[in-house]
Simulated assay, not measured.
Amino acid sequence: MKKMRKTMMTVMAAATALMLTGCGAKSSSHGNKQDADTVKIGVNMELSGSAAGYGNAEKQGIELATSEINKAGGINVNGHKKKIKLVIRDNKTATTTSSSIAAQLTTKDKVAAIVGPATTNAGTAQIPNITKASVASVSPSATDPGYTLQKNDKVQPYVFRACFQNNFQGESAAKFMAQTLKVKRVAVYADNSSDYGTGLANAFKKTFTGKIVDSQTYSEGDKDFNAVLTSFKSKKIDAIYVPGYYTEAGLIIKQARQIGIKAPIVGSDGMADPKLAQIAGKQSATNVYYTTPFSLQVAKKNPVAVKFMNAFRARYHVAAPTFSALAYDAVYMVKSAIESEKSDDSAKVAAGLAKIKDFDGVTGKITVNKTHDPEMPIAVEEMTNGKVTNSFSVK
């Protein structure tokens, strides 16, 4: 999940320039060392600002995983059990803050690894500092295809993620709509405030085998979608594809139903948040679908996921959201990397993350490929009256 907003473009330009300088520099051959009894894991997360809904869900998953690992004795570092110490910082959904937090976590706090940020823009901003310090970061939800790559398509050595790319999501949504929903006439209504929405829309259009009847865009903060939706209705669409975030997607769903559009509305993992139904209204949030790396329905068949879901409900008294599951997996990926390398030196942690194969995660079996992207399953969840009532696997 990526959340790059137009309001941040000036800051991003500076951050990108810094990134190019940092990525061109040599990183140290050895990373941060840890003390005798603890492994420090940094958390660079959007706990306030526009992406706080995602960041706080991920923080819950991180804290649950850490609690479980510590309760079981800690991480096995070459035969010695060491407890995790989390160092949590709020980047406020701001690229400059994310960059400065990364510098603090790597040089002052001397963490072994970082989990986060949630968004691609904040994650991109920290790359120069984590590269310079040889500290790996695992983002639970940065989905832009180029996030793990440098400008020359060379892999970023310290950048990893626990979720699939936007291209995979857009392609999967197109296949699902054509093969499962069997729709032939689709309108696309994408968020143009970020590469997240536009990237998903482009991947969808390239893959969908039916007819794209119309394609329109909206921006972050828009409230009135009636004119475009009325135009869609007049064109006798079979479905609408809405790649974006729950804030605007919820209003689009609500207004579409109010003007009599009953056709399926399909979106992306940015809709995988309980607030979607709150914004849309429970009755309106029917015949709604979205791609997701974590489906509660599919997870019931996965013992690792069942354990996670039960533990999450016991701790937080709600069903586990997608972004908590991704962050939970990210912590366990760091643990797996440390134990496989028999070292919590941050440079060794990065090497271990790159070697992960057939990791049993909450979101399914994960293998990290040569571009530091996880090869993992994808699902589509269906909402009826504001609740997830069905799920589908996409191949």
Rank of each mutant, 00 (worst) to 15 (best):
S139N: 09
P140A: 11
P140H: 12
A142M: 05
A142E: 05
A142S: 11
T143E: 04
D144I: 07
D144A: 11
D144K: 04
Y147K: 02
Y147L: 04
Y147T: 02
T148M: 01
T148H: 03
L149D: 02
Q150R: 13
Q150A: 10
Q150P: 07
Q150T: 15
K151E: 15
N152W: 12
N152K: 11
N152M: 10
N152D: 15
D153L: 12
D153G: 08
K154V: 13
K154A: 11
V155M: 06
V155I: 14
V155Q: 08
Q156R: 09
Q156E: 14
P157C: 00
Y158K: 08
Y158A: 07
V159E: 02
V159D: 01
R161W: 07
A162R: 03
C163G: 05
C163V: 15
F164R: 03
F164D: 06
F164S: 09
Q165N: 13
N166D: 15
N166L: 12
N166Y: 05
N167F: 02
N167P: 01
N167H: 05
N167V: 00
N167L: 07
F168P: 02
G170N: 04
G170T: 04
S172N: 12
S172Y: 08
A173F: 10
A174T: 06
A178Q: 12
Q179I: 11
T180D: 15
L181Y: 14
L181Q: 14
K182A: 13
K182N: 15
V183P: 05
V183F: 08
K184Q: 15
K184I: 14
R185C: 11
V186A: 12
V188R: 00
A190Y: 14
A190H: 13
A190M: 09
A190R: 06
D191W: 08
D191L: 07
D191A: 07
N192F: 12
N192K: 13
S193Q: 10
